[in-house]
């Protein structure tokens, strides 16, 4: 496990060595959530949360929607370039005997740090507009969105080139989180339950606007994360073998 730890620390050190990147990881999610929460009018809108229709302020709805989306964007782009930039180093690590689970644990750890940092920042900005009823669950839902999209980004980094990868991560969260999972839509689109943001967003809205949180979406979300992680691990193993 010591090589996993060293690889993890090296990955983090690479982030810390780039102050511009650190500043962007904090500033971009904060700016994103704040802009949306500020520009929409504060009318009351009906939203369906956990099967119940509630009357909620538009600014609160938009803030609660944009926090997971900001985390998804950060996680996704970080995952994409994590796999692309570390490819050569990971091949060398595999040659000198570091096991596949150790390399994946180290890279996953770096991704988790980026996702948790982005979710902390965006949840803090949400709290300026609307303090979620269950802050801990909201934070967990936001971090889970970042992790799922981080893994999707890592998979995109292994399968596509950077141009296609960035495009997928620009388009994917917008379509999934902003449109398909939006509580403003009157009916759930047929594909919405199969998209990466579905379960985390269900939990995020439950935690933001209701006192009693149903924890089942987090288990489904973790299952989704595990499935994407398995596919990513298989793609990663194939890349190492080819490399």
């Amino acid at each position: 496990m010591s090589s996993a730890r060293t690889t993890f620390e090296m990955g983090l050190r690479e982030y810390v060595r780039t102050p511009v990147l650190l500043a962007l990881l904090v500033f971009l999610p904060a700016y994103f959530v704040a802009v949306f929460a500020r520009v929409v009018p504060d009318d009351t809108v009906p939203v369906t949360v956990a099967g119940e229709t509630l009357q909620v302020g538009m600014q609160a709805v938009v803030a609660a929607l944009m926090a997971p989306m900001a985390t998804a964007l950060v996680g996704g782009v970080a995952g994409l370039f994590l796999m692309r930039s570390a490819k050569a180093a990971d091949t060398r690590l595999a040659i000198v005997g570091t096991s596949l689970p150790e390399i994946l644990a180290a890279r996953g750890g770096v991704l988790a740090v980026a996702a948790v940092a982005a979710s902390l920042v965006s949840t803090a900005v949400v709290a300026v507009t609307h303090v979620p009823e269950q802050v801990g669950w909201f934070l967990a839902a936001t971090a889970l969105t970042g992790l799922v999209y981080g893994t999707v980004g890592a998979l995109a980094g292994l399968v596509f080139n950077r141009l296609a990868g960035v495009y997928v991560l620009m388009f994917g969260p917008l379509l999934d989180i902003f449109l398909a999972q939006s509580p403003l839509s009157t009916e759930t689109h047929a594909v919405a339950p199969y998209l990466p943001g579905h379960y985390p967003l269900e939990l995020a809205f439950d935690a933001a606007f209701t006192v009693g949180v149903d924890p089942s979406p987090i288990w489904w979300g973790l299952g989704y994360l595990l499935a994407v992680a398995l596919v990513t691990a298989l793609a990663f193993r194939r890349t190492l073998r080819v490399g």
Binding site: L25, L28, F36, V77, S85, R162, V166, L169, F178, L179
Partner: peptide, 23 residues
């Protein structure tokens, strides 16, 4: 690549969501 892509993705998504008339 990482920093440039992060900024472009955020700028594009804010622009698209607000300029499109959906919000």
């Amino acid at each position: 690549e990482l920093e440039g892509s992060l900024v472009l993705v955020f700028v594009a998504d804010i622009d698209e969501a607000l300029a499109s008339g959906i919000v």
